[in-house]
Write a protein that binds this DNA or RNA. Structure first.
Lengths: 118, 118
DNA sequence: TGGTTATTTGGCTATATTACCAAATAACCA
DNA sequence: TGGTTATTTGGTAATATAGCCAAATAACCA
């Protein structure tokens, strides 16, 4: 038996955590969240996304590359355009959970305001 | 009606994306993922977590502060110790989705190896 | 009060991330 | 082939993040 039970993090666990963190980090940017949401509605090419996101096309390309490296999106060459699609649609459910953090934060904030008043 | 439908991102949407990204970013670190998982088993004080994570206590304290600012954990003073607890337990389900990205990545890798061989 | 333990914060360095512009590459059309 | 459009990549600057050590704070005990 190796080190488990309250001890330091095992190498195996460490690797698992790093792998997960990489994927989460790939999602941790407003523009990339937008891209993922948009792709959930269907394939989009770099140009289309660029117009919507409103930053330089090279920046959008880099964001897409981050998502692709993480395995979240996949590209599809079609003539001179490259269409991106979501590879893991379940990523969207994930957002519900994030939303619940936001709701809780908002509630806590309200409560704080009320307390202050009394 | 304001700008929706294919146009650039609205200010409102932008704000929503930024709020979400902040929370996701707070989770995007191996040590913080570990902390969240550990807290899902029950309250832990900074010292306990520090022993497990294996970095300086000041670093763990900073990680906890990131999670707290994001609204993911909550602290509970108890004598000279401060116990942290998960504020949003659903955060854990979230990991299943991340896991499915990892599985898909592994499968793609396998497939690639097979293709190379033929 | 003075000492001890738990935790946070300031200051610093190293590294990573994001954005832009300009240039390179790729695919198509005339 | 030369031109045009779509996309990626190199280079660079600004900012953010993660880690450590040392010092500050807080709570307890003798």
């Amino acid at each position: 038996m190796s080190t488990t039970k309250k001890g330091k993090i095992s190498t195996r666990t460490q690797a698992r955590l790093e792998a997960r963190a990489k994927i989460i980090k790939a999602l941790a940017h407003p523009s990339r969240l937008f891209i993922v949401e948009e792709l959930s509605r269907g394939a989009r090419c770099v140009n289309e996304l660029t117009e919507m996101v409103g930053v330089d096309v090279s920046t959008v390309s880099r964001h897409l590359s981050v998502l692709k490296t993480a395995g979240i999106v996949q590209d599809n060459k079609h003539g001179t355009q490259i269409y991106y699609i979501l590879r893991i649609p379940c990523i969207l459910k994930f957002f519900d959970c994030i939303e619940s953090v936001l709701v809780a934060n908002a509630q806590a904030h309200m409560k704080l305001l009320k307390t202050r008043r009394s």
